[in-house]
Amino acid sequence: MTIKKTFWQKYEAWIWALIFVIIYVWAFSGIPVTGIQAVAGEVTKSILHGLFHPDFSYVYTGDGEDLISLLLQTLAIAFAGTIASALLSIPFAFWAARTKKGGTHLGSSSGKLFLTIVRTFPEIVMAIMFIKAVGPGPFAGVLAVSFHSIGMLGKLFAEAVEEIDRRPAEAIIAAGGTQFDVLIHATIPAVIPEFISLTLYRFEIAVRSASILGLVGAGGIGAPLIFAIGTRWWPRVAIILLGIIVMVTVIDFISGYLRKKLV
């Protein structure tokens, strides 16, 4: 005797496939494919030509507006922003971490909600707000990175705090230690390696965002890039993209190496 399959068991995969197809038919109906401009082919050709003939004279000119100086500035924005953000995130992490068992989690839930809001707030809008406050330039970029990163770093730090081993803290309390002793001898040593590793990871992301913040005038390599794209100066676009690729690859490599050493 074979067991009869229910209708749902029999057709589940087909129903999901149908839903999937309907969603995609709807999605494709919303995007006008005719929107491609007639010169796209020509532009692509000149881009490719430019990409294979990068403007190497831009790499170093000595006037502080060249590729190397601006890449260094981008790194400086990411670094200063990440370090400041890591320090600012610590209190938020302890606010959002759920360390007590049972009961209501009003404190930690409100902290988590706050961090989600910060995380979803577009970084570009934040950068523009800071530009209004301190004027265009790399400092606005540093501020945008430092405040925006709190959303993600605070969340990751809070998860690290939630996951630490509680037994050393109990041992210190049992031996007559104060809450302050617990913080110094149990909590901080347990979370520091984790915090450093997460900060390095966030630094990798910050390098990427610092390189696009210049699109709105917050310093770094983004400004000359958008200028070069706007003026269709493809050899210049190519050298900037190459510079960014090399910078991000090197930073990812160093950061990955350091993070492996930490664990």
Binding site: G35, I229, R232, L241, I244, I245, V248, T249
Partner: peptide, 28 residues
């Protein structure tokens, strides 16, 4: 694959807007 992953999304958008023009096609 590593090279593709280094490029930030907004930067790709800036390039594609230049190639196919302003509109959702560049975003896609």
């Amino acid at each position: 694959l590593n090279l593709v992953r280094t490029l930030p999304d907004l930067m790709l958008a800036a390039v594609f807007v230049a190639v196919v023009g302003i509109g959702p096609m560049a975003g896609v």
